[in-house]
Design a binder for these strands. Sequence first.
DNA 1: CAGTGCAATGTAATGGATTACATGAAATCG
DNA 2: CGATTTCATGTAATCCATTACATTGCACTG
Lengths: 359, 359
Amino acid sequence: MSADGSKRKRQGGKADTSNATAASGRVRTVKEIAAAANVSVATVSRALQRPEIVSEATRLHIQEVVKRLGYTPNALARNLRTARTRLIVALLPDIANPFFSQVIRGIEQVAHENGYSVLLGETQSSLVREQAYADMVAARQADGIITMSHRVPAIPMQGRLPVVNACEYVKDQQISSVYVDNVAGARAAVDYLVTLGHRDIAFIAGPPASPICIDREQGYRLALEAAKLPGDPALTAVGDFSIEAGERAIELLLSQGQSFTAVFCSNDEMAIGAMRALASRGLRVPQDVSVVGFDDIRFSRYMTPALTTVAQPKNALGREAMSMLIELLNDPEVPPRKRVLSADLVVRGSTAPCPPRRA
Amino acid sequence: MSADGSKRKRQGGKADTSNATAASGRVRTVKEIAAAANVSVATVSRALQRPEIVSEATRLHIQEVVKRLGYTPNALARNLRTARTRLIVALLPDIANPFFSQVIRGIEQVAHENGYSVLLGETQSSLVREQAYADMVAARQADGIITMSHRVPAIPMQGRLPVVNACEYVKDQQISSVYVDNVAGARAAVDYLVTLGHRDIAFIAGPPASPICIDREQGYRLALEAAKLPGDPALTAVGDFSIEAGERAIELLLSQGQSFTAVFCSNDEMAIGAMRALASRGLRVPQDVSVVGFDDIRFSRYMTPALTTVAQPKNALGREAMSMLIELLNDPEVPPRKRVLSADLVVRGSTAPCPPRRA
DNA sequence: CAGTGCAATGTAATGGATTACATGAAATCG
DNA sequence: CGATTTCATGTAATCCATTACATTGCACTG
């Protein structure tokens, strides 16, 4: 039972005369390893893929040769043959938005627990870019994708697409989605402002194409209605989720002479922009104007004042999305689901009771 | 010259009897397309890869069939054959750090200009994760990598590794790196504090394993020396670049009873943490303590007060890194370079003249 | 009109691994 | 001890596209 490989038998003995490039430091193939180890390519492949079905002596010998010669199997060839890559692509709209980074973490955790690697593709919300990354699935370079936009990229396949939707949701009932109850979250935020006595509550909406934005706006409206507040449409401004958009929205409202004592923003970054714009107009947060955001990104608690916001369970969103995708990859028959998590208001320093009405 | 494909000639005529799965909506291969279009696989391949060498009639006909049947070439097979993927992997230590997002933007811009796609791999500074992504190159799944850590992953290849190093640098002279002059940047920051009259300047260092951190510390020391200031080692605390580390560092210094009127932090996130910790101890920034960061992340200007920091040319770092990598992929003979960009101090509100010495 | 060159297309080798099937030896059974 | 499993390994087909080389028809030349 010596593992030194000196007694390879059952073999023609055409060992070293092979055309293997010997000790040169180049790219190896199974063939070369097989020749060097004096076994067949099948045995090399088996020794690496399912070591338990190869005799111990052979296995150790092959492993030694692999190590000595420095061999990494060509994943393209492997994946071509096996028709799976154990790679998934996560499409994220904006790498600069810290909200997504926590979601990604959740995705990666579950992926690694299940032997998958995650590649990130930044799309900047561009359809073209989304499609380009999605094509990797069609081209068999990845097994599935998690998209964080409200669109489902086209993948020419029949049956269930290996796509899961996170943080957003798509109408298509064939696609599983994980997202939070944006209506309830927004409603909770605005309810809270109402409790504080605010009556003139402005709203900075997000991109109207996105369902979650519509939901957040609806939550805002429902809260106003419940409080029997008029809800002046002129108190709503639209932004694109960027800090700058938040600043511009406030500038706009103020320059229009709108008066309000609170602003609810569709995300934290716009809230951060709003706080800055208010400050530069000499309005104090929260004494003059209360500000609430949505998402609870990492930086929000470090603002001055710390931002009151609706926290999304970012890690859970990611974990759940990846779990669903793996489930789907393992069994294309599992029925699609829309999973809704809850978003909770986190009260910090940017909100305060409504100031006494200025004459 | 009719493009309807009705006059395919020079062909055995064994057209439709093929085993192609006809109109079923499944995954296609060249063979099926060739059969459906009544041409050879070579012609299909050519019509898609180099349309100009195929007659117009045939090309249009094939394109129509491809479109109708919904065919996407298997990239694995293609890449296996051509031995290139036009994919590069960018290893980023921490997706949550906004500094990197701008660098990524630069990388992606140049990549797309040159027909490459970028996949991001988050490593969380873990050697294992770095290696896992780097193995994709060894496994021929990607053409090259840009690493933003101070380590070069092992890739069993002879000659130049298709690796470029950005934001950090490695001693290995065979690897091209792009980074800023950290010594000069740090020095400028501390010089500025000196100019403001500060004499007791604390320093929050980054992970000591990282060369750029050593450089930033050196810049700090050089500035102190130049100003003939003692430079008490007890005024230095070490952090790991996180916001929390910045808070802890300040807590530590204060609890040790250290007195200082300024802090220079090795990155912005630690500076943000520092500001918060100072505030919660009742110390005002900048009246009592000035704070300077490094990087100029997006959120820094939105802090209250806005953070004075050393700005890195993030986009340029990314663009330059990708340019170097493409150059290297096109010609493995190009000599490696270490490219050093400059980092400039951006003065904002977190720094002020040294307060009069308290009794 | 034979000869040459070019354009368009086809045939088959190729890339590197996995794996179904085949084979031989050893172990087990009755 | 012959028959039957089981184990370890080998041979060759396969995954799918690209491309070197071969072939064919046609236009053009002298």
